[in-house]
């Protein structure tokens, strides 16, 4: 078994708190964080920033054939979410009535288990979203 714990750990801020970044030059927010601002290049001034915890569904799909390790989770909903500051996130949608999962629906971040390699490795935690009224 490959030890994924150190690799995972570097992404905790992103997964736990939706930490992305923001360019003070062009005022655009990025998630996941970018190494350089794609708009301003060398002139960009990137600072770390927690993304808002709410947003709306831009597009979604229901996954019946999941990737390796998510077989027992299927079927589940995946959505592209536009957060309140314009940044976009791909996330699973949980705890929501199927008829309420639609384009434009308001969603809120929740903290969930993402997966575990087996019964011995570390558990991966992170964000998912749920539809709110």
């Amino acid at each position: 078994m490959q030890n994924i714990a150190p690799l995972n750990w570097r992404r905790f801020p992103e997964r736990y708190l939706l930490k992305g970044n923001y360019c003070e030059n062009c005022k655009q927010a990025f998630f996941p964080p970018r190494a350089i601002c794609p708009n301003c290049r060398r002139k960009g001034k990137l600072v770390s920033m927690e993304m808002p915890r709410t947003g709306k569904i831009i597009s979604y799909t229901k996954v019946y054939v999941p990737p390796e390790g998510f077989k027992n989770e299927a079927p589940y909903y995946l959505a592209i979410i536009e957060l309140e500051n314009g940044a976009r996130v791909l996330s699973q949608i949980v705890d929501s009535e199927p008829e309420k999962i639609k384009i434009g629906a308001k969603v809120k971040k929740v903290f969930r288990r993402i997966g575990e390699p087996d019964k011995y490795g570390t558990i991966t935690y992170g964000y998912k979203f749920k539809v709110v009224e």
């Binding site: 027992n72 989770e73 949980v94 705890d95 929740v110 903290f111 969930r112 288990r113 993402i114 558990i123 935690y125 998912k128």
Partner: peptide, 16 residues
Amino acid sequence: AASDEDSCTMAVEAAR
């Protein structure tokens, strides 16, 4: 609790 919830995720949600 749903299959992707545990005592840790519920603790975070309550505190949040």
